[in-house]
């Protein structure tokens, strides 16, 4: 029964979106964290999605979502001159993480909407399957 595959596909997508949500939470939690060492500052992380499964040539057209790792953003760090900061380097500079709060909020909303879409998809397909099971009763 091909309808069952929808659960797998939606499941992989929900997993991917929840990883995205976790990463966003981590980014928001660490937004504004500072360090005196540019190499030790928290850098924004982003999950990389990829689709997997059947190719178009196989004609089934079904593919789930997989996570191709999490990358660190290489956006420039903000350098603040704060000589009184306990973590400041010898020049009196501290480095602030490159998390873009607005971008992260948008990411969070997008992940949440996509997750909801997948839940709806599962619900609809479940209804269809149950209706099919009661065919002819």
């Amino acid at each position: 029964m091909s309808l069952f595959k929808v659960f797998d596909v939606a499941g992989t997508a929900m997993n991917a979106q929840s990883v995205r949500m976790n990463v966003t939470a981590s980014n928001l939690a660490n937004a504004g964290s500072v360090s005196g060492d540019a190499d030790n500052v928290y850098r924004a992380r982003h999950p990389v999605f990829a689709s997997f499964g059947d190719t178009l040539a196989e004609q089934t057209g079904v593919s789930g979502v997989k996570l191709n790792g999490v990358i660190e953003s290489n956006a420039p760090l903000q350098v603040h001159y704060r000589p009184d900061h306990p973590d400041a380097d010898e020049d009196g500079n501290v480095y602030v993480s490159n998390v873009n709060t607005i971008e992260e909020m948008v990411n969070m909303m997008s992940a949440s909407r996509s997750y909801q879409n997948n839940v709806e998809m599962i619900n609809t397909t479940k209804d269809l399957l149950l209706q099919t099971l009661s065919l002819g009763r």
Binding site: L3, A10, A13, Q17, R20, V48, S51, G61, V65, S114
Partner: peptide, 19 residues
């Protein structure tokens, strides 16, 4: 049923680059 599968793949991959 098949079309349901294909469309669900589309929605699942709504955020996948190059899909």
């Amino acid at each position: 049923a098949l079309r349901n599968q294909v469309l669900s793949s589309n929605i699942a991959n709504a955020d996948t680059p190059n899909y």
